[in-house]
């Protein structure tokens, strides 16, 4: 069970977390006609928001216990991982209807147009890259007993 601790007060707004997330979810693309292929960074699942008082708030999925997104999905495409506790998108089942993103009260889920796929924080399957690269400790990962 992985838990990410978020401390907005410590966030400096450097956005290293976004970059790390993007690369942690990058895909190697095969060479396609008219392109070179190569690495395609993913849409960051963590976003640093700037509030009206110019404070920085790293926003990412809370992995809610009673998650609205799971209730919204009609195709069984959202499942909680028993290992990490993260709510994961089963992309094969997902029909891109977008109801999960619409249901999420926090805006922590969205469509990655280029693939296309619904994306959200999956705790990097157990090793959150954002926490690893956060220089201030605003994002810290911790392993909890189940």
């Amino acid at each position: 069970m992985i838990r990410l601790h978020v401390s907005p007060k410590l966030c400096s707004g450097c956005r290293s977390c976004e970059m790390a997330c993007s690369y942690a979810h990058a895909e190697v693309e095969a060479r396609v006609a008219g392109g070179l292929g190569g690495l395609r960074p993913g849409l960051p699942r963590v976003r640093v928001s700037v509030t009206g008082t110019r404070a920085f708030v790293p926003m990412l999925c809370f992995q809610c216990d009673e998650a609205r997104c799971i209730g919204a999905c009609k195709y069984g495409a959202l499942e909680r991982s028993l290992r990490t506790g993260a709510i994961e998108v089963n992309e094969e089942r997902c029909t891109l209807c977008g109801l999960c993103a619409a249901a999420c009260p926090f805006g922590n889920m969205e469509l990655e147009h280029s693939r296309p796929a619904m994306v959200k924080c999956d705790l990097c399957r157990g090793e959150p890259a954002c926490a690893k690269f956060c220089p201030t400790g605003a994002l810290r990962g911790a392993s909890l007993p189940r």
């Binding site: 401390s7 007060k9 928001s49 926090f106 922590n108 400790g137």
Partner: peptide, 25 residues
């Protein structure tokens, strides 16, 4: 939605956690 919830979480007071770190939300 993210922008408006960030406003709320940004204003929440820090609280103690098991590891002694502050945490919000």
């Amino acid at each position: 939605k993210r922008r408006s919830s960030a406003e709320k979480f940004g204003e929440l007071p820090a609280r103690r956690t098991r590891e002694g770190l502050s945490e919000s939300g």
